[in-house]
Design a protein around this nucleic acid. Structure first.
Lengths: 129, 129
DNA sequence: CTGTACCTTCCCCTTAGAGGGAAGGTCAAG
DNA sequence: CTTGACCTTCCCTCTAAGGGGAAGGTACAG
């Protein structure tokens, strides 16, 4: 099938497929006589995997690494387990940071509720930030 | 004082100060005879406010808005209250999204612990993502 | 006179993951 | 015969907040 059909089948754009090819997530496809890329079901499977990886917030670089292991005939399981562990702790860090920021902002907001515009020092711009 | 001293006093770089000027967060400063920017304590106050705003994860655009209100002789309190409310709910959304992603990844990881590499379908690339 | 520590403007580079659009080739239908 | 829907490559643009570095001016110490 051609690129448009493959992209539609994976719920992606043709731009994305060419981009993935350029980034090394898709192998250079067979070209037919007119130069058009020709894809098979294997490409669709790959695209579905990329989608699942993206949904899990893996970067294209991480996904490429998994694909390379699989292409090299290895089972990427161990690698993926490591990846997921690190991602989980990254996510925990990000969440903790956001929660801390949220607390800061919430405190600013509490200050703001009690604020008196008239007693505010203009030199400080805004007294409750 | 010159830009280097002002930047140091605010814990910023000279690049940042010029950038803030370009973005409209700092007014065009007085230039002395050799063309150097000349700053006063008012600039430092402004820079400290910008720092506090950044620490509260406000964007430069949002900070500029607050500064403009203050420069226009208004008290930016009400505006800042709105800004903080919206930011708080944005943060809550972001946190909820990250937590949901974390749950997804954690589930993938639980699957991965029980995974059997030999029963994995290569066409699917990786069965637990 | 020279070094060096400032300052100026100007333009390009960074991250991530594409999207927009130009200029041109291909192919089937009406 | 032409229209329209595909496809190709190539280059530019986006967000945010600056950083890097070139080419050149300035000021002061030794």
């Amino acid at each position: 099938m051609r690129i448009g059909e493959a992209a539609a089948a994976a719920g992606m754009t043709t731009k994305a497929l060419r981009y993935y090819e350029g980034r090394g997530l898709l192998p250079a496809p067979v070209r037919n006589a007119n130069g058009y890329r020709e894809y098979t079901q294997a490409t669709i499977n790959r695209l579905h995997f990329i989608r699942r990886g993206r949904a899990a917030a893996l970067s294209l670089t991480q996904i490429r690494e998994i694909l390379r292991l699989r292409d090299a005939g290895e089972t990427p399981c161990t690698h993926v387990q490591d990846l997921l562990s690190r991602e989980l702790s990254d996510l925990d860090d990000q969440i903790a940071e956001l929660v801390s920021l949220r607390d800061t902002v919430a405190e600013f907001q509490r200050n703001a509720e009690r604020a008196d515009p008239d007693s505010c020092d203009p030199a400080q711009i805004c007294s409750f930030i």
